[in-house]
Each structure stands twice: as C-alpha cells, then as structure tokens.
C-alpha cells in the first residue's frame, strides 16, 4: 500500500536504477488509423447565383458566363448566327421603312428628314454591331441589346399596309413571303445566338467536368433537326395567318361564290385585324388540341407501343 504523500505509482523505485525496457508489442498496434489533421480549404462549396441575364440565356442548364475557347459546335453556331444576322439586317432594311417611326416623325417636325433616316440606319447598324460583338465574344448583354434594337426599329405606325420603302414589290405574295422570312429570321437569330451562349455554357461545363455528356452527336443532331423543322413550322403557321383572307375565301367559295368574292375584297380582312382573326382561329385550334390532350395521348401510345 502506498504511503501517504507518496505517489502510488512505482516510478520512485527506479531512481538510480538501470532499466532496460522492451517496448510492449501492442504499442505497434496503437493508433493505426491515421490521416492528416489539415482542414480542407474548400469544405464549404461556392454557390453561384445566376444573374437575370445569365438565367435568361442559360435556361435550365448550368448558368456560367466565363467560357472556355469555343469548340467546333459553338464556332459553327457563331458562323450561322452571323450569317442569319446579316440576312436579317438586309431584310430589316427592306421591310422596315423609316416612315411611321417616332424618330422620323421627330425629324420631320424639325424639317430634317435625313436625320430620321440617319437615326434609322444608325439603329440598324448598332443592332448589327452589338450582334457581332455579342456573337463572337459570347456576351449575352450585347445580344440582348441587339434584340431590343432589332425590335425597336420595327416599331412604326404602318396603317395596316405592307410597304417596303427601299424595294418595290407589286406582288402581295412576295411581300408576305418576305415578311414571314423576316419574322422567322428574327426569331432564328434570337434562338441561334441564344444557342451560342447555351452551348458555350454546356461545353465549358463538360470541359471543366461539371457535366458529362453521353452520345454528344445524337444530342446535337436533335438540336440541328429542330433548328430546321421548327422555323419551317413557324413559317407555315405565320403564312397561314397572313394569308387567312385567301384561305377563308377559298373555303367559303366551296359553298358560295358571292360570299367568297366579298371576303376577298374585304378591307378589314386585308388589314392587320384580318391577320389577328387568322391568328385567333389558328391558335384556337391549337388550344383545342391541347385541351383534348392530344400530344399527351400520342405520347402515351408511343411509349406503350411494343
């Protein structure tokens, strides 16, 4: 038993003594599980909250605006966007006369019509410049500015007349075809430039390992097919609405020649309100298709087909 005031261990017994100790064998087993005590630098993930413009262009894909150099797919889209933009610029110049615009009215008021024309041309050139810069630097802010300017230039009071100030077309059909082509090109320009940004995001995400893409070619093929099919369908629908007067007259003509002639000569149907009526009818049919769940039913049949 240890004495009071003396440590209960046996260390005092070794004072001045030679001790040769063998290490206990289990010491080797002690604390085998090892790892570094260092804390991970990036244990807390960085959360990137996309800005409005980023999310507008990114869609549901990973929004990231710092891109790696463009790959072949993106370069092709850039070239295509550039070509569409030039065509759009030319068509905009043809189908959008300066008369009826605010700047023309203002210039006319001060007796300097050329100023109105100058502003008109300037808007178009700035739209093209912003578009070029936006496409090749893949900067969505410039692309947005370009869209706004392309739309701004077409805001004019037109009195329901399709007038091309720079080129004269007597044939109404050619006018309508040009108008539809212009509209399709504008929408395709928006879509293609959007595609440049979207695929740049995707490409960057693939190359940085954030996203992995399987069967890239098939995925891209579907996009390419859509780029061809969708404008054709949109152009078809737009042509139907623009030529609604002729279609309705032909249809009514099956039952009554006189009514058909009256419809053909109708000023209201020729005007923009005729187009509105056509649009209403076309989209009413589309609404019925949606209400009857036709696409869903078709999809269901296709999914269940063995």
């Amino acid at each position: 038993m240890a004495k009071k005031g003396v440590s209960s261990d046996t260390s005092h017994l070794y004072d001045g003594k030679v001790v040769r100790a063998a290490a206990p064998s289990r010491k080797k087993l002690a604390a085998k599980m090892t790892s570094s005590q260092e804390l991970p630098d990036d244990a807390i993930p960085e959360v990137h909250i996309p800005s409005f413009v980023e999310s507008l262009f990114g869609g549901p894909l990973v929004p990231k605006m710092k891109f790696l150099p463009a790959d072949k797919m993106v370069q092709t889209l850039q070239m295509l966007s550039g070509a569409v933009m030039i065509l759009l610029g030319v068509l905009t110049w043809i189908v959008t006369p300066v008369s009826g615009t605010v700047w023309f009215a203002a210039a006319d008021l001060i007796g300097a019509e050329f100023l109105g024309l100058g502003i008109h041309l300037l808007i178009l050139l700035v739209a093209l410049g912003c578009g070029f810069w936006g496409i090749f630097s893949r900067d969505s802010r410039f692309l947005l500015a370009s869209y706004v300017l392309f739309i701004l230039i077409s805001l004019r009071f037109a009195s329901s007349k399709v007038t091309f100030e720079w080129v004269e077309f007597d044939d109404g059909l050619i006018q309508k075809v040009l108008l539809v082509t212009y509209a399709v090109l504008l929408v395709m320009y928006i879509e293609l430039t959007n595609g440049v940004v979207r695929f740049s995001m995707l490409d960057t995400s693939i190359r940085t390992g954030e996203v992995y893409v399987m069967n890239v070619k098939k995925v891209l093929n579907k996009y390419h097919i859509s780029l061809v099919v969708t404008p054709l369908i949109a152009a078809g629908v737009a042509a139907i609405t623009l030529m609604f007067k002729d279609i309705i007259a032909d249809f009514v003509g099956l039952f009554s020649e006189i009514s058909a002639t009256r419809l053909e000569e109708s000023v209201e149907l020729e005007s923009v309100y005729g187009v509105a009526l056509g649009t209403m009818i076309v989209f009413l049919i589309v609404a019925v298709v949606f209400a009857a769940n036709v696409p869903g039913r078709i999809q269901k049949i296709r999914e269940n087909a063995d």
């Binding site: 189908v95 959008t96 009826g100 739309i151 077409s154 805001l155 004019r156 009071f157 037109a158 009195s159 329901s160 007349k161 399709v162 108008l179 539809v180 212009y182 509209a183 399709v184 504008l186 929408v187 879509e191 859509s226 969708t230 404008p231 369908i233 949109a234 152009a235 078809g236 629908v237 737009a238 609405t241 623009l242 005007s271 923009v272 187009v275 509105a276 649009t279 989209f283 589309v286 298709v289 949606f290 769940n293 036709v294 696409p295 869903g296 078709i298 999809q299 269901k300």
Partner: peptide
C-alpha cells in the same frame, strides 16, 4: 400600330413556343 410586321413576328414566336410545347408533350 396596325403593323403587319410586328404581328407576323409575334405569330412566329407563338408558333415557335407552341411547337416546342407540343414536342415536349406537356399537354397532359
């Protein structure tokens, strides 16, 4: 503004959207 041009662009945009919606089969 009684502007055919704007109406046509609007119709093309709507057609574009409608076709995409149909293709995405969300009607159900």
């Amino acid at each position: 503004l009684r502007n055919h041009q704007l109406v046509t662009v609007a119709v093309v945009l709507l057609s574009f959207l409608t076709w995409a919606a149909l293709r995405a089969s969300h009607a159900d």
